[in-house]
């Protein structure tokens, strides 16, 4: 488990940071994903699929964390989450605008776009990570791009 963590933790934390824009929350999500895998290791039918399982757990964890954050801050529920001050200082205004737009998308559209264009996963891998069919990946990606283009167009 420790070896698995050493190999994949950085990539998974970065994935969660992209999704959430919040590094402490991202680290918590990844820790919980590894703890979940640890508890279920003996039930995993194919241990070579551990990364796929972890990626799915991180995606689900990010979704839960984002919803929990919105519930805790009901007044801000409709506001897109932004980067932490520390992170924001490292990201250009153009990139912050795009990230804010991505985080306004519905969960599945956001996840499909991040997996496709950040991780460069193919449709089969995205389908496995999101546990949806390949056709749904294609249409969700397509609609996410349309929606994102619309949001960015409105902002510019």
């Amino acid at each position: 488990m420790t070896a698995l963590y050493q190999v994949h933790a950085l990539g998974l934390i970065r994935l969660a940071v992209v999704m959430l824009g919040d590094r402490p929350a991202a680290e918590d999500v990844v820790q919980e994903a590894f703890c979940g895998l640890y508890r279920r290791w003996h039930a995993l039918s194919d241990t070579t699929k551990a990364l796929s399982y972890l990626r799915s757990s991180v995606i689900n964890g990010c979704r839960t964390a984002a919803r929990r954050r919105n519930r805790q801050l009901p007044g801000l529920a409709s506001d897109p989450p932004g980067e932490s001050a520390e992170s924001a200082a490292l990201i250009s205004e153009e990139h912050q605008e795009v990230l804010a737009a991505i985080r306004q998308l519905p969960d599945r559209q956001r996840e499909a776009l991040v997996l496709r264009f950040y991780l460069d996963l193919d449709e089969e891998e995205i389908a496995a990570s999101m546990r949806i069919s390949r056709g749904t990946v294609k249409s969700t990606t397509s609609r996410g791009l349309v929606a994102l283009g619309r949001i960015l167009g409105e902002q510019s």
């Binding site: 934390i13 940071v17 590894f34 153009e94 605008e97 264009f117 950040y118």
Partner: peptide
């Protein structure tokens, strides 16, 4: 839009340095 997503998400990801991974707490 695709290029903008790639650039922005990688910029966000790179805010986590390679040595910025906390220890695993099982």
């Amino acid at each position: 839009v695709e290029d903008r997503i790639r650039a922005a998400t990688r910029a966000a990801a790179n805010t986590v340095p390679p040595d910025g991974v906390p220890p695993l707490r099982l």
